[in-house]
């Protein structure tokens, strides 16, 4: 591998397995996965229920540790980070988008977006400006002072995406971000994630083949193994410099 290629990799999985104990037997949720993901672009992870999609995503996001193998994100071996390093990793390198939105209910949209910046030590004035700019860019300029319960599902998820990118992470992870939305709102969310993916890597777990088609790359997973599927190779993306 030449240096340029290494620099372009944002995620690298080396023989990653994750096993769970269920009584006396062990279940391999993810088994011996080798995977590299390039800087920028949208990657969809698809596969049947229980195939290990979420498990894979959690390991990439350092929410879960692999049983075997190594996960490298932005050059860091995330399974070996200390608790302090892990906190910094979550603040700076990765942003999460949840199926259930997970906005803090008693904070306004603006405050929700500003929160990760505050954790990251951004000054009050700067984070307020940045949060406002982000929300306006996501067509939520008229919802700054609204609380989550005063927003629609689609609006909540847009606020959540703004929050995920607030600290300009290299990686955005989303597990079925449209699972709780109607198809119209889902469509908007996917377009937004696509837009976000021009500047950073977005990895989306989804059941929807239709939405997977918008992705630059689709990873198929079955019984914890990667399988070849249509559109599984590296697609040449126009935004790649």
């Amino acid at each position: 591998m030449n240096k340029l290629l290494i620099d372009n990799l944002v995620v690298e999985l080396r023989s990653v397995s994750k096993s769970y104990r269920k009584g006396s037997e062990t279940v391999d949720a993810v088994a011996g996965i080798e995977l590299t993901i390039q800087e920028r672009g949208m990657v969809a992870i698809v596969g049947p229920s229980g195939s290990g999609k979420s498990t894979l995503l959690h390991m990439i996001g350092a929410m879960d540790r692999p049983t075997r193998g190594e996960v490298l994100v932005a050059g860091q071996a995330v399974n070996r980070l200390s608790s302090g390093e892990l906190t910094r990793f979550r603040r700076q390198t990765v942003g999460f988008v949840f199926q259930t939105f997970n906005l803090i209910p008693n904070l306004t949209a603006l405050e929700n977006v500003a929160l990760p910046m505050e954790f990251n030590g951004v000054s009050a004035s700067e984070r307020s400006v940045r949060a406002k700019t982000l929300l306006e860019r996501f067509q939520l300029g008229h919802r700054l002072k609204h609380r989550p319960r005063e927003l629609s599902g689609g609006e909540m998820q847009r606020v959540a995406i703004a929050r995920a990118v607030a600290n300009q992470p290299r990686l955005v992870l989303a597990d079925e971000p449209t699972g709780n939305l109607d198809s119209r709102s889902g469509q908007i969310i996917y377009e937004l994630l696509q837009e976000v993916s021009r500047e950073r890597t977005v990895i989306v777990v989804t059941h929807s083949e239709e939405l997977a088609r918008l992705a630059d790359r689709v990873i198929h997973i079955r019984d914890g193994h990667l399988v070849d599927g249509p559109n599984s190779g590296h697609k040449v993306v126009s935004v790649t410099p």
């Binding site: 906190t87 979550r90 942003g95 999460f96 949840f98 209910p105 929160l115 954790f119 990251n120 600290n167």
Partner: peptide
Amino acid sequence: AREIGTLKAIGASNGG
């Protein structure tokens, strides 16, 4: 519980 998990996921420290 979910909110605490979310706070951690977006970068809250244990001290926080």
